[in-house]
Design a protein around this nucleic acid. Structure first.
Lengths: 212, 212
DNA sequence: GTCTATAACCGGATAGAC
DNA sequence: GTCTATCCGGTTATAGAC
């Protein structure tokens, strides 16, 4: 056992994944070189290409490692809710899996891929999120049958957007708010806000008033 | 007058700003080289450094060109609202300036800088947004006096987050929703959702139920 | 003000020894 | 599986002619 292994007791592949997740999350994909990653992981530069073929495939691997268990837990929590589920149950099923302690180091990265249009559609939505979104959209219409499918879709998008922005800017939230941030208190505020938004009375299609 | 000037009737500096705004918005700051920008703008590579010193200062100039008029209009609309302003007036004052037709080409860029933690705090919030946020936070507490300053701050953040995500992913919204997107209809849905979130009943601090 | 040419550097990927 | 050395293309920025 070398010194590096004693300090960071994981195999090379895992060390690369952990280092890449941290640096990609902190500085972004383009701004993080494979050399940065191998320095942080204390592995050789060529090990990245040996284990992951390319930087691009490494990014895919990092995303999949985190988003698959999150989605699994989301669907489990949604299935465990009643029929119809309460609005709060839906919101919690969607958000709570991100609060699991083992997800903490991945939060900046998740915020990035969810808010970056380059990554988002092909790399995240189509591959990992589409079926989950459909399931949650159904649940929203069960809980709030007065919503049209379009309205339910957009409200789901706004819910995800609120969450994403919290994740994406998590590193600067203490600076923005001027004080330390309690993640669980923040999550309660977010659930409260989003649940009210989901329940909003359906507005008239046009700006002018119509019959009620 | 050269041919290039006849085709794009702006001076070199403006052509660079327009091309950079478009390409930075489409592909991000790191993925867009000065060579990409000068090719799109049909100007010489060295012109960027002559007019803007560095890529970094060019980014600052692009952000300032768009965010200053938006903020001015936001504050005007807020000042024009009554005392106390209605929740809808507050939300509209914040969002509507982004719908001005001349802002359309800047939407992807604005979405990027608002959701990227690297740019956001130093380059955007401290320089351009802090005083506006304070003004809007005041307005929210005027309209909803039962909210604590902390709660008002976070609800303002959630409102901005919903909006930011719409801007950041604007280029993929038709793919996500499966149909063309009417910007004004989307804005009405967003105002409706966010207004309800702002008006959410204040939740108890702890998860367990307390006296009402 | 605008151009060409180039300096100085850094990126991802890979060949081939061990 | 892991390393060193290297290829090759791309980057920002600038010097200096016009």
């Amino acid at each position: 056992m070398t010194l590096a292994e004693a300090v960071t007791p994981f195999d090379t592949k895992t060390r690369i994944l952990n280092a890449a997740e941290k640096l990609f999350g902190m500085n972004g994909f383009d701004a993080t070189s494979l050399r940065d990653i191998t320095a942080e992981a204390q592995v050789n530069l060529a090990a990245v290409n040996y284990h992951f073929q390319s930087k691009d495939s490494l990014i895919d691997a990092i995303i999949a490692r985190r988003i698959l268990p999150i989605n699994q837990r989301r669907l489990e929590k949604l299935a465990a809710a009643g029929h119809p589920p309460s609005v709060e149950q839906i919101v919690e099923a969607f958000l709570a899996p991100l609060l699991m302690p083992e997800m903490l180091p991945a939060i900046p990265l998740i915020g990035r891929v969810m808010s970056n249009p380059d990554q988002f559609f092909e790399r995240v939505f189509k591959k990992h999120l589409q079926h989950v979104a459909e399931r949650f959209s159904q649940a929203i219409r069960e809980a709030l049958p007065e919503l049209s499918p379009e309205e339910a879709f957009w409200r789901l998008f706004f819910m995800a957007g609120c969450m994403t922005q919290v994740l994406a800017l998590s590193s600067v939230l203490p600076l923005l708010s001027g004080q330390p941030v309690d993640r669980h208190a923040l999550m309660r505020r977010l659930v409260n806000f989003v649940a009210a938004g989901l329940r909003a009375p359906v507005a008239a299609a046009a700006p002018m008033r119509k019959e009620p």
